[in-house]
Amino acid sequence: MENLSNILGRMGGVYLLPAGLALGAFVLIGAPASWATLTIAGLSMGMMVFLMASGLSLIFGLMDVLNFGHSAFISFGAFVAATVLSLLGGWVGADSVFLNSMALVFALLAAVSFGLAAGWFFESVIIRPVYHDHLRQILITMGALIVSEQIILALWGGTPITVLRPHFLEGAIILGNVSVEIYRLFAFGLGLVAFIGLYLVLNRSRIGLLVRAGVENREMVEALGFRIDRLFIGVFMVGSALAAVGGAMWAGYETLITPALGGEMMIVVFIVVIIGGLGSIKGTLLGAIMVGLTANYVGFLAPKLALASNMILMTIILLWRPNGLRPAVK
């Protein structure tokens, strides 16, 4: 037993969990083609959720701020991107990959800029006065969430909005007898790029070094001569922009969005960061992949359980590791 856990530990420890999950699902599902489709769907969902969750996790890790308003960035990202895509409707539907991608780039850029601006506003106006006060932080960010959701309702109305997808992301490619939606591949790729980018910045740059140090001990970072408040606002803006991009990608994935989107995703995002361990980027990725896979496998195997599947997953993991799979060092 001791040996086994050592071997597992050396092979990647908790990072083996998604592989184990996929293996278990393979046995239960039995049909390789369905399994492959579900796995790809799960991975791409996981990556989109990672985009949404990474900011929350980073912000909490560094600033000890849990932003309940984070889901507003997700919703706004989705609606801003959907609006830009519908404004550029001609480009979106055109038979030119260049025009398609320009529409996509503009939509994502709009979501990013919105996320950056809203993040700046949130950090400096709403959250800064209540640092170090968790109770008021939770209340105030919750209040900000309510107001943001109402603004979305006032601007876009309560009826579902159809999201146009750039033409070149439509359709599927057939590999053997497995059909893979191109959009899912794209979502997976974008999420992966974001993860690698974040990973490199955190581990290879001086800013990243500061962020990692700040997660552990803010006071000491200040005592070494760095203005941590400036770091905070930067991280908050980037985290919010990531959430907006996640929301934008999710809008394209769902193709029909309502203002309830943010609230629904927020629960998933919370479960992801609780499972992964708040404050750790690798933990967040792990949690997101686990949640994405579980949602898709359970949705296929036992549709009635699909709803509660994430809660069950969270309960099991918390019973096993009360601080999540990969908590940041504190």
């Binding site: 140090a213 001990n217 000491m220 005592a223 001569g225 760095f226 203005r227 060092v329």
Partner: peptide, 24 residues
């Protein structure tokens, strides 16, 4: 002054708990 600015003036601090960044 802000702690960071005080540090930049040439004061270093070794706290009682040492303030080491364990993950680094």
């Amino acid at each position: 002054l802000h702690t960071a600015d005080i540090a930049r003036k040439g004061i270093a601090y070794v706290p009682e708990n040492m303030g080491i960044f364990g993950g680094l």
